[in-house]
């Protein structure tokens, strides 16, 4: 029957599509593996201005994006952006949806169990943000208060040390927006992100800078050769001032060097 043949063909085509999606990574001469041998596919969320944000043409820009592109260039590969929601990036890198993630991940032991980190590419820290009229100044004032954070971020863990009323959003920007609009008592996020949001007109004020953190590029654990290459490229970019240049462009200061 013609119908049965058509159905069979249809399903085998779908099957083929699935197979190609699970394609193996390509192995290079030096032993490192890439999804495509000429490309460096790096993930970012696009929801963490000024580190990554979406342009009108739906491509991403920002500090993280430029660093990713600089690294790709340094390795002689074509940079390819991949947008993944922040909460899904670590798993995305682990399962091979991207070669790496340049997405402002703070180095922490929990993540280190699942993925590998490069050397830090910038230094920052979580800060408390509130509305201008708020009485909250330090982490002690957070007790019993409602704090909004981004899902999958270290800020959620930070917040849980001081309060158990935690609300999660997919992006830090949405959390700050809600705060600005009158909801929740505080947001914990990167001090640079909050500063940038305030400059853009969000009704928020910076409070205590809780701690210092180191942010690095995320790679899968089973790809040590690629990790080595990326670290080498990072070192080059530090030495020739590229990292500093990018930092000055976005922040007017150099956050890529370790603070004293």
């Amino acid at each position: 029957m013609l119908w049965n043949k058509k159905i069979l063909l249809f399903f085998s085509l779908i099957g083929l599509c699935f197979l190609s999606a699970c394609a193996e990574k390509e192995k290079l001469a030096d032993g490192s593996e890439l999804i495509n041998k000429n490309q460096f596919v790096f993930a970012a969320s696009g929801e963490f201005k000024p580190f990554s944000y979406i342009n009108d043409d739906l491509t991403m820009s920002g500090f993280d994006i430029e660093v990713g592109e600089a690294i790709a260039k340094e390795m002689g590969l074509k940079p390819v952006q991949k947008r993944i929601k922040f909460k899904g990036i670590v798993e995305g890198v682990k399962t091979g949806r991207a070669d790496a993630a340049v997405a402002s991940h703070t180095i922490n032991p929990q993540r280190s169990k699942h993925v590998a980190f490069t050397t830090p590419y910038y230094y920052s820290g979580p800060q408390i943000f509130t509305r201008p009229d708020s009485k909250i100044k330090t982490v002690k004032d957070l007790k019993g208060k409602e704090v909004a954070v981004a899902k999958g971020s270290t800020y959620a863990d930070t917040a849980s040390q001081y309060t158990n009323k935690i609300k999660t959003y997919d992006s830090d920007i949405t959390a700050l927006q809600a705060l600005s609009g009158g909801r929740h008592d505080a947001v914990i996020t990167d001090f640079v992100t909050g500063k940038s949001a305030a400059q853009e007109g969000f009704e928020i004020k910076a409070q205590q800078l809780i701690s210092r953190s180191e942010q690095a590029i995320v790679l899968p654990k089973d790809n040590p050769k690629l990790l080595k290459r990326v670290n080498q490229s990072l070192e080059k970019l530090r030495e020739d001032g590229t990292l500093t240049r990018i930092s000055m462009k976005y922040f007017g200061e150099d956050i890529t060097s370790k603070p004293e």
């Binding site: 899904g88 670590v90 798993e91 699942h114 899902k151 999958g152």
Partner: peptide, 11 residues
């Protein structure tokens, strides 16, 4: 589900 999933890297 998604919060726990991302916290535990096991969506």
């Amino acid at each position: 589900a998604t919060t726990l999933g991302s916290n535990n890297f096991d969506e």
